[in-house]
Every structure is written in structure tokens, then in C-alpha cells.
Design a binder for these strands. Structure first.
Lengths: 155, 155
DNA sequence: TCCGTCAAGTCAACATAGTTGACATGAGGG
DNA sequence: CCCTCATGTCAACTATGTTGACTTGACGGA
């Protein structure tokens, strides 16, 4: 895992703004960092990292998901999924079993321990969002969601 | 460089929401992806990637920056900076020269070609932001900035 | 029953992006 | 003359991803 020491001390640099939107661009960068920082530190303490969390997050919201669907949702190759997935299975944060009537696919599910870790890691991220939304009020939060939706739909 | 084929086809998955803020959390994820997608594709065509862009972005806004300061701002080690930086120097997108009265530090500057690439890559990112802000209006954009500032300051 | 297809698993080779640690070089300053 | 400081460079390592090639085991149809 990459060390977090540098990232943790990373402060928002004050750079000259060459364009009107440079401030927004940098906010996106530091916003992403700000949201994920504590979650990554928590995960690192568990010997896990972002890819593991992404797997846990998706499986939590799609119990009995097949591996192929997981690959599709995560947007990575089977081989890239393989190692973090096996780690999670080895550590019994996930279980896999064949479907009773469809033995081709393996169905993934979180164990209790997996649920706890997924929840704690995601809680760190949600906490940052909640505090920001509280400061901005309901209308500010709604505006943020609308703008982010427009940005996210760019593909 | 990692291929963009998977990322380009990556659609916003519809996952069950276990928490109120899950939608916001996913918007941050896909928002980051949405903003950087086209810029990354452009950079890949130039044989460059995000680390190169980050260097170009900072040097554009801090002409005559020393290498040590660049390391601090980027939050990576000297050794990690070394390869992308040398590539940019080799390709004459950056120049380095010693200060006239302070021969210890090297001062970095963009060349014309470097400026063009920095601008085009950043333009892809700003375009996505601009379109989203246009849809949201000035007050929506301001609210977005306020919320992102609160999120970014989490450290 | 055999054969093709499909989901999954696994191996090798590679690229990228980062880390530490150790050490060299060259300029400036006391 | 020596110490410090900025930079450069080498080696070894980790982590996350990629392709390509191949196996295994289950299912389903001719």
C-alpha cells in the first residue's frame, strides 16, 4: 500500500489562477482527497485499501452478485479483481457460493465482519459529506447534488 | 499507462442505497471520473498521463518553481517525481535552468508546447465543470463551491 | 452422448505510480 | 576546508492495473 504520510500532510496549495474555473478544478481534486482521506487511513489499518473497499461497497448493495457483474460494475479486468477478491475471501469478509439451480456463477455476500468494515469505511466518507451538507443547508446540498450529477453524466 | 477502454464504458451502476448519503458518495466517485475522463484520454494520446498533467498544471501556475517546492505541492517523493519530470524535460514540454544568483535550485518553466498541452488537458476538465455550472446557474455553482470547500478542508 | 459455450480461475509478462534507503555531485557559506 | 542544502540517481520493493493464453467445470442443445 502507498504510504499516507504525504497525503495526510497535503495542504491545498495556493496557485495562481490562470482561468476562472481553476478554483473549481482544484476543489474537485482536494474534495476527492478530503472525502477519501480518513477512509483510506482506516482501511490501511485493516490491511486493506481502496479496491477492497470498492468490492465491499458494491457487494453490500448487491448481495448475491456474480463475479462477472462485479467486474462490470467496477470496470476492471477479471485478473485485476482476482487478488483483492481472494484476499477478502481468505479473510472471511466475503463468502462465495454457487447458486442452487445455476452452478455456473458464484454468488458473493458479505460476512458480518465484512459488513462492519464496509460500514466503517463508508461512514468515514459519509461523515465528511454530512458535515459539509450541514454547513451548506438543504438547498446547498441539493445544488451540490445537481451539479455533481451533471459532471458525473459526462461520458 | 492503464487502458481507458474499461473506464470509458464505465456507467453509473444502479446500486441499492443503504444510507441516505450513498447517492452523494457515489456522485463524488462518478463526478471525479466524469471530470477527468476526457482529459485522461487526451493525455494518453500524447503519451502522457495524470502525473505529467499535475506537474504541468502546477508549473504553469508557478513559473520558475524549484523542484523541491514542486515535490511539496504534489505531495510525492523526489524519486517518484523523477521519471515523469525527466520525460517532460526530454520532450521539451518543460525547461529547467539555474537561477542567476542562486545556483543551488533548478527553476522550472513550461515551453510553448508544454503550455499548449497543459491548457488543452485542463480545458477538457474545465469544459465539464462549465457545462455543469451552466445548467445549475450561478447560485448552484456557488453552492457547489461552498460544499466542495467544506469537503476539501477535511484534513 | 458429445460438443460448444459460458463463468470462473490461474499463470506469465508487463506498465505505471508510488514508496525507502543509500549514495553522488555540485554550489554556497562560515 | 568543511558542512549543508538542492538535486540527481541507483536499487529494491509494493500495489494496482493491463493482455494474452490456458484450464476447469457446468450447462444446454443437436
Amino acid at each position: 500500500m502507498p504510504k499516507t504520510s504525504q497525503a495526510a500532510g497535503l495542504h491545498r496549495a495556493s496557485l495562481a489562477k490562470l482561468h476562472e474555473l481553476d478554483a473549481a478544478l482544484e476543489l474537485m481534486y482536494y474534495g476527492w482527497r478530503g472525502m477519501t482521506l480518513e477512509a483510506d487511513e482506516y482501511l490501511a489499518k485493516q490491511g486493506l485499501s481502496r479496491p477492497h473497499h470498492r468490492i465491499l461497497y458494491v457487494v453490500a448493495r448487491r448481495p448475491d452478485i456474480a463475479i462477472g457483474s462485479l467486474i462490470e460494475i467496477l470496470g476492471i479486468s477479471k485478473q485485476a479483481l482476482n487478488r483483492p477478491l481472494n484476499l477478502l475471501l481468505d479473510r472471511k469478509l466475503l463468502t462465495s457460493k454457487r447458486a442452487p439451480e445455476q452452478h455456473r456463477s458464484k454468488l458473493l455476500r458479505l460476512t458480518g465482519a465484512g459488513q462492519r468494515i464496509e460500514q466503517k469505511a463508508s461512514d468515514h466518507e459519509r461523515k465528511v459529506l454530512r458535515e459539509a451538507f450541514d454547513r451548506a443547508g438543504a438547498s446547498g446540498a441539493a445544488a451540490w447534488m445537481a451539479v455533481m450529477g451533471a459532471i458525473a453524466d459526462n461520458n
